[in-house]
């Protein structure tokens, strides 16, 4: 051992390094602000829809605390592409800009590098969750207070939906980082994330739930699992109740299982290769 070598908490300094890598470019706040703004817009639209919807004979009006829950429960369903992208980019930018070499020079243990990325992804994901909540509340709270029955911010059910929404946003970011480790090509990864979240999964959920024998499978898709954690879903509202969802804890486990499998695959493919 070199006598002059400083001793460092390797995982601790790896976390600090990852945080600095993330926050030293514009991407993280651009995506974060984008998420808050998008949710503010959707929050206003949904709040007006629920609060100002004319009474209809077919569907009972959503009123009271249910309206607040319906709006605030969309954090995950509407905003999840943002944490998924920031997590993915946390890994793929290193490949795209060839900074992976320098990252592995200062930390040759590749598991430490990948692990630090997953933890920082969780942190920035939780932060995005908070930003999303701020965005949602910024518009839906005044609308529901003025036009509807109120936002019920102190109601335990509302607080629970918000808390779980933030938690699941953190999980999405971890899943994104793990996915980036499997598909390190940045363009391919972004296209895959957008295609899966915007087309493949919604269609798969509709298709699977239309077939009785397969309807149980749809609950294991990542979006459905995330909806299960929050216990509320835009998709569920539209299709008339999310009866096919897993229990909340099982939804969280399914998301973690996806992240774990992707992490293991990424560790033994992208993070095992020669870096040339």
């Amino acid at each position: 051992m070199s006598p002059t070598a400083p001793t460092l908490n390797r995982f601790g300094v790896a976390l600090l390094a990852e945080w600095r890598k993330l926050t030293s470019t514009a991407l993280w706040w651009v995506l974060g602000v984008g998420m808050a703004a998008y949710l503010a817009f959707m929050g206003a639209v949904l709040a007006f829809t629920f609060a100002a919807a004319p009474p209809s004979p077919d569907t009972p009006a959503i009123t009271g605390v249910d309206a607040a829950l319906a709006v605030l429960g969309t954090l995950n369903a509407i905003g999840y592409v943002f944490p998924l992208l920031v997590g993915t980019l946390l890994v793929t930018t290193e490949v795209r800009h060839r900074t992976l070499t320098q990252s592995l020079l200062v930390e040759p243990r590749r598991g430490v590098l990948l692990g630090a990325k997953l933890v920082v992804a969780a942190a920035v994901g939780l932060l995005y969750g908070v930003l999303g909540v701020v965005g949602l509340l910024a518009t839906s709270a005044p609308v529901l207070e003025l036009v509807g029955d109120g936002i019920f911010l102190t109601d335990p059910a509302v607080l629970r939906v918000l808390g779980l929404g933030i938690l699941v946003t953190g999980l999405w970011a971890v899943l994104g980082a793990a996915f980036g480790a499997v598909v390190p090509n940045q363009v391919a990864a972004i296209v895959a994330v957008l295609a899966f979240t915007q087309f493949v999964e919604p269609i798969a959920r509709l298709g699977l739930s239309a077939v009785d024998s397969l309807s149980g499978v749809a609950a294991f898709l990542p979006g459905a699992a995330a909806d299960a954690v929050v216990g509320a879903s835009l998709f569920g509202e539209i299709s008339g109740g999310g009866g096919d969802l897993l229990p909340g804890w099982a939804g969280a486990l399914v998301l973690l299982a996806y992240a774990a499998v992707l992490t293991v695959v990424g560790r033994w493919t992208t993070f095992a290769r020669d870096v040339a």
């Binding site: 600095r20 890598k21 030293s24 991407l27 900074t99 070499t101 990252s103």
Partner: peptide, 21 residues
């Protein structure tokens, strides 16, 4: 072939790698 992130400042690049050395 070592790269730099074009959106990071020179100082930002160095401070990102500083903790681990």
């Amino acid at each position: 072939a070592t790269g730099f992130h074009p959106g990071r400042t020179g100082l930002g690049h160095l401070t990102a790698y500083a903790p681990q050395v």
